[in-house]
Design a binder for these strands. Structure first.
Lengths: 137, 137
DNA sequence: GTAAATTTGCAACAATGATGCGAAAATTTA
DNA sequence: TAAATTTTCGCATCATTGTTGCAAATTTAC
């Protein structure tokens, strides 16, 4: 059984063309993908709405996660830890390359704790670092 | 001379109705504002395009700055340090309250440095913390 | 106060995202 | 494996958000 099928079944999602193709895209890409990237790379074989709904279903099942960016674009990424073990992933730092504008999950870099002013209770923290990635250096 | 006028003149912006009103909104609000907030609070006295362009001009002059959020919305905030002294503001942490969903600049909390994997060169880092703010606790 | 420069508002457009619904798939059942 | 059931797909439609060009109005400079 192919890897994509396994992942879908494990997450109780029916195996359809769009889900297979899009999941494969995530497995092949080393960075995060925006909706537009996916539409381009699938060669317009799927309806825009289908892509949205496919991504939604992946997010709901916790297979992919969203990455906040400085500009107003949503990016999705598959976390290595997630798809292999299914366990809750640590809160890791995301890196966006200013050169190739690729978004990369730094799975091994955890978001540091910060001391907040009195009265503020933290629940969750996100950190995004911009700079030059290892490929563009 | 009113405070808003001063700020505008200091930043070489002509003093117009929309700029005055929107600047006043920022001075009054203790949190960050989204475009939609501004449209609501100005009571639709200005065209949508004018609001966009006003915000753009403020960003260009460095009077306000953008805050990234987990959802896909741009928020703008006036930094106390900025508008008083005009000097380049430190990279501070932003806090978003899960209760009142207000976005607050923690001007005194600087974004910590993180150790990146080999090959990655950081240039800029953003940190957004979610949780409960001092007013909602 | 008038000329020059800037800003505004309107119209139009593009991109992104959501929803309802019948048709087409995938899954389950027998 | 074929029928029944459930899920998903694709189309049409709509809402929101943001941009651009241009003429009219406003602001600034002289």
């Amino acid at each position: 059984m192919k890897q994509v099928e396994e992942i879908l079944k494990k997450n109780h999602l029916s195996v359809t063309g769009s889900r297979q193709k899009i999941m494969q895209l995530f497995l092949n890409s080393n960075g995060a993908l925006a909706h537009a990237d996916i539409e381009k790379k699938t060669g317009e074989s799927f309806d825009r709405v289908t892509v949205y709904r496919t991504l939604q279903s992946f997010v709901e099942k916790g297979i992919i996660h969203l990455i906040p960016t400085r500009d107003n674009s949503i990016k999705y990424a598959l976390c290595k830890d997630d798809c292999e073990a299914g366990h809750h992933h640590d809160n890791h730092v995301h890196f966006i390359c200013d050169e190739c504008s690729k978004t990369i999950c730094l799975d091994d870099v955890t978001v540091p704790q910060v001391k907040l002013p009195k009265g503020f209770t933290p629940q969750h923290a996100e950190m995004v670092v911009n700079g030059i990635c290892e490929e563009c250096k």
